[in-house]
Design a protein around this nucleic acid. Sequence first.
DNA 1: CACAATTTGGTGGATATCAAACAATTTGAT
DNA 2: ATCAAATTGTTTGATATCCACCAAATTGTG
Lengths: 155, 155
Amino acid sequence: MAGKSMTVRKTNGVDRGLLPMLVGYQLRLAQIAIFRNFKQRLGKYAITPGLFGVLVLIEANAGMKQTDLAKAIHLDRSSVVNVIDNLEAVGLVERRAANGDRRSKALFLTAKGKRLLQRLKPRVAEHERHLTRHLSGRDQKTLVSLLQKIFPEHR
Amino acid sequence: MAGKSMTVRKTNGVDRGLLPMLVGYQLRLAQIAIFRNFKQRLGKYAITPGLFGVLVLIEANAGMKQTDLAKAIHLDRSSVVNVIDNLEAVGLVERRAANGDRRSKALFLTAKGKRLLQRLKPRVAEHERHLTRHLSGRDQKTLVSLLQKIFPEHR
DNA sequence: CACAATTTGGTGGATATCAAACAATTTGAT
DNA sequence: ATCAAATTGTTTGATATCCACCAAATTGTG
């Protein structure tokens, strides 16, 4: 019989099998923790990491098209429609006619959107600081750099 | 006028603002890449990283209750109902009456489930190897260890 | 024991996302 | 110039997940 008598370590009474050695698994756990902490700290703004990303992108690329946004945040074009519908409904983002192309819409932050984003940024920074509180500055850079190596295409 | 004249680096024509320095953002990108690669390599088995995790957990903890599973994979109990419904429908998992408690159901892999999981494991290992192909063995361990530091509660 | 509190699996509603189709428009090839 | 191909935003399902609630069963407390 095979079965390299592995060390069986249980966490909270559950044997996680080969999962803990998988980068994908650890990544998923870490992201869950991040999402929770983000929600806890920024819950009252009704914002998620994804939505924050959208605001940052539109701020940094005023007038970008929905398709550009979709590619940038790795969302489907049809999902972006919904996201922008919502952000527009609460008055944070605005769809305007694009200059040369009557198909596409140019995205802009409203004044309200810009104001909110400025208020959000320090909170997000705080959230990041909390989440990396057990990592030295060097560790943090290492982590980001290792993560980047996972998707070098970066498409 | 503040605005520390930051270096503006565009990727695919889009300025990502402060996002690239956020661990949360890099994590999200990495996970998207992982999900895609996983799907590409294991798509024909109609399995996702989450479902693979469920199978591994049930294998390693035969007879575990749905609530245990929910905690272990950080899913809502009601979501687990759906997940197990599906896995049971395709004959990979079985709900049996738990011994002492008439509320809970004991989860088991069927013979088919065990067989599939054995066939899956090498594919997943391959997927992991691909995804960490630009990381040395040492880097890989570092990455996992850094990720673990992000959620030390590990509840 | 009696009965309140908790736990367990489940249902129904809300939301986010993807995928496949679509019409309007633009681009490209000849 | 014409017309096929590609792009853009959108609509319409399908699915996965959460949350709030529920009934049945169990546990804990007087």
